[in-house]
């Protein structure tokens, strides 16, 4: 439900002229894709831990960097970046 909620918010913000990027677990991707969001980065992380495990600052940062990179690189609605790294504990 949170992912669909963010879908509504992303569409409204984008319609108001502010670019958005959603960073989320891939688990929910099929629920969100029909909402036609502009930019989505998905991780192979467990639900409720979308950016990485607690205290895994390195992974959290790399996901955010990827998301912000998509803000700059996307040229049309539907930009999707799938990050391949599996969930891990903080090194």
């Amino acid at each position: 439900m949170c992912h669909v909620s963010v879908g509504h918010v992303a569409r409204a913000i984008e319609a108001a002229g502010i670019p958005t990027v959603v960073a989320m677990s891939r688990v929910f991707l099929e629920r969100v894709q029909p909402m036609r969001l502009p930019r989505v980065v998905v991780t192979r992380h467990l639900m409720a831990r979308p950016l990485g495990a607690p205290h895994d600052a390195e992974r959290q940062t790399s996901v955010i960097r990827a998301a912000l990179g998509l803000l700059e690189s996307a040229t049309a609605n539907g930009a999707l970046l799938e990050l391949p790294e599996a969930y891990r504990l903080a090194p």
Binding site: R11, E14, V27, E30, P34, L37
Partner: peptide
């Protein structure tokens, strides 16, 4: 993770033909 993903397979309640894009 794998079973979590299976459980959420399929579209949700909201689907649109197009979407906004703000550069």
């Amino acid at each position: 993770y794998a079973y979590n993903e299976r459980s959420y397979a399929g579209p949700g309640q909201f689907a649109y033909d197009d979407g906004p894009f703000a550069p």
